[in-house]
């Protein structure tokens, strides 16, 4: 396990309030370099808010945080240069071709022309997408789109990549192929911060945190969490945590 390396994300007592509503309530955690970190929680538990803070889109109300070696409060600009983000499903432009999408994203991350060209070729051959290079995104199969989206989110070789429900609605084989890509990235030292509604996927993570009502109620390796909650599967852990008193409908 890679739980001994340096911390790439350090969060301390982070709070985000919207008016009188506290979306993120005093959360603290660390993520190690090269770790696959699962970030779970029910709808409305504050996951999205927390991620938006970590990638520098929203400023926190209070607390301390360090992402990719930069201070969240004073160096949000630097953070954005050092992370990748893939929103729920892909953020590729449907009406641009594969190569145009790669060039566009490389461009906005400020890659130089010759480097970008090289990186684009590398990426296409890595994904085995040579035959698709001039195809419009809307015409390529879903599985390919997804893989391309992930690679594009990492085109600038970020230290951390944030994936927000990257696999929802995807067929089971593609879903697994996608996780192979996640592992590849992690093996190369990229930290992966991922949210999902598929509980079996949470087992693929090195460590998992579960948010309930704005707080992190559990954080450990899947094995430890199952032991702690005396559960067979992560699904059970999640249900026990997020639905503690067995509310009936």
């Amino acid at each position: 396990m890679k739980l001994t390396g340096e911390n790439i994300i350090e969060v301390e007592n982070l709070v985000k309030r919207f008016g009188s509503f506290t979306a993120v309530d005093n959360i603290s955690f660390q993520v190690k370099k090269g770790e696959v970190f699962g970030f779970l929680g029910a709808n409305g538990a504050g996951k999205t808010t927390a991620i938006k803070m970590l990638i520098g889109l929203w400023s926190p109300t209070s607390g301390k945080a360090n992402v990719a070696g930069f201070n969240l409060f004073t160096e949000a600009e630097q953070i954005r240069k050092n992370i990748g983000y893939m929103a729920q499903r892909f953020s590729l432009y449907e009406d641009l071709t594969v190569i145009e999408n790669i060039q566009f994203y490389g461009g906005i991350y400020g890659l130089r022309k010759n480097i970008l060209k090289e990186r684009a070729e590398e990426l296409i051959s890595e994904l085995g997408m040579e035959s698709f290079r001039k195809e419009l995104i809307k015409n390529i199969p879903l599985g390919w789109k997804q893989k391309l989206a992930l690679s594009v989110a990492m085109i600038h070789k970020p230290k951390i990549v944030f994936l927000d429900e990257p696999t929802s609605g995807v067929d089971p084989i593609t879903r697994r192929q996608f996780w192979d890509l996640i592992y590849n990235a992690a093996e190369k030292g990229t930290t992966v911060f991922v949210t999902t509604h598929y509980m079996d996927e949470s087992e693929y993570c090195d460590r998992v945190s579960i948010m309930v009502d704005g707080r992190i109620e559990a954080l450990d390796t899947p094995t430890q969490l199952k032991k702690q909650f005396n559960a067979e599967s992560m699904d059970e852990v999640f249900l026990k945590l997020a639905r503690p008193t067995g509310i009936q409908i």
Partner: peptide, 15 residues
């Protein structure tokens, strides 16, 4: 149940 968290999904199926 698409995009709904596991807890709400369980509740929905019980309904």
């Amino acid at each position: 149940t698409t995009g709904v968290d596991p807890v709400s999904r369980v509740e929905f199926w019980e309904m």
